[in-house]
């Protein structure tokens, strides 16, 4: 079996296990290529039936407009339910406090809104597009990753996970994060997107826009970035390799207009995908710490 067929079959199998094992699952949708790939896989797993779960977007309010347009068109086309959890609501309710300073980002606040959304809707499983090749703590995580009632991951007490048998049994209040594309690499995702002809938001492809350089990274010059007189705005040809919100996702200079160019660019790249994520640069254990706190 070709490796992409194998990865696809495994992901479909995992999605169907979620449907079979949980009462109220949800698919976490960020508008990025990995969650768009998950939606495509869910179509393969459940069509012509409906998805047995809604899509859930945790919205920082600092989005690329292209991503939101794409999301709304995708939902209209799918005819599935979308639930949006707004970080702004968590701030307004006093549950989250906006960061201050030049490098302020709402990225860390997402965890609060995510856990709130999970408890409001009573979700017992959340499907996410995280991959083990992204980061070394993720390389350790099970496909069915049990979180306690505070959303915390305990890397030292992970359940053994053998063969294709996933134990999703939990007590009330706990939930399981499920990662169907755990075994895919960035290149696998792109090769699959090409093979399946999956549509993506335009910002993944080379385009011209205003950018500033912040901490050595190219950031889209957006109002959320606290731009001041020290920042030099340049008009450059860039694309985004991952898509989070505008405050934590850096662009890369790129001439890749077509998916073939992107695949070639990634094949030759000497920088990892998350190298362009400010949120991972905090410390050696940034991801592990966030996951222990309830992050995706």
């Amino acid at each position: 079996m070709d490796y992409l067929d194998h990865l696809e079959a495994e992901a479909i199998y995992i999605l169907r296990e979620v449907a079979g094992q949980f009462e109220k699952p949800a698919l976490l949708f960020s508008g990025g290529k990995d969650s768009i790939t998950l939606v495509h896989l869910a179509k393969k797993a459940f069509r012509p039936g409906r998805f047995p779960f809604p899509l859930v977007h945790i919205d920082t309010g600092h989005n690329f407009p292209e991503t939101i347009t794409f999301r709304d068109e995708l939902i209209a086309d799918l005819k599935e339910k979308l639930i949006v959890g707004y970080v702004q609501d968590s701030i307004d309710a006093g549950k989250a406090v906006e960061q201050s300073g030049k490098n302020a980002s709402r990225n860390p606040l997402q965890t609060i809104t995510l856990l709130d959304t999970i408890s409001t809707h009573g979700f017992d499983a959340c499907i996410g597009g995280a991959r083990r090749d992204e980061e070394k703590a993720r390389a350790k995580e099970r496909i069915f990753s049990v979180r306690d009632e505070f959303g915390q991951w305990d890397p030292k007490r992970q359940r053994p996970e053998l063969w294709n048998i996933y134990n999703g049994r939990i007590h009330k209040g706990e939930n399981v994060r499920v990662f169907p594309i755990s075994n895919w690499t960035e290149l696998d995702v792109w090769n699959y997107i090409r093979r399946e002809n999956i549509d993506l938001p335009s910002i993944y492809f080379s385009h011209e826009r205003d950018v500033i350089t912040r901490n050595g990274q190219l950031m889209a010059a957006a109002e959320y970035l606290n731009i001041d007189h020290e920042d030099v705005i340049e008009y450059r040809k860039v694309r985004f390799r991952t898509v989070g919100d505008m405050t934590c996702t850096a662009a890369v200079p790129s001439e890749a207009y077509h998916i073939d160019d992107i695949i070639e660019e990634i094949r030759l790249s000497k920088i990892s995908e998350r190298g362009a994520r400010m949120d991972d640069k905090v410390s050696e254990a940034a991801m592990e710490d966030r996951k222990k706190g309830g992050y995706f």
């Binding site: 083990r132 070394k136 993720r138 390389a139 350790k140 890397p155 755990s182 690499t185």
Partner: peptide, 24 residues
């Protein structure tokens, strides 16, 4: 250090849980 993904592993210099790595 590439494969020891957890703080506890790096501190002790041992592997505690499986890490999955990919190459082609």
């Amino acid at each position: 250090i590439l494969t020891d993904g957890l703080k506890a592993e790096r501190e002790q210099g041992i592997t505690i849980d499986v890490a999955y790595k990919y190459f082609q």
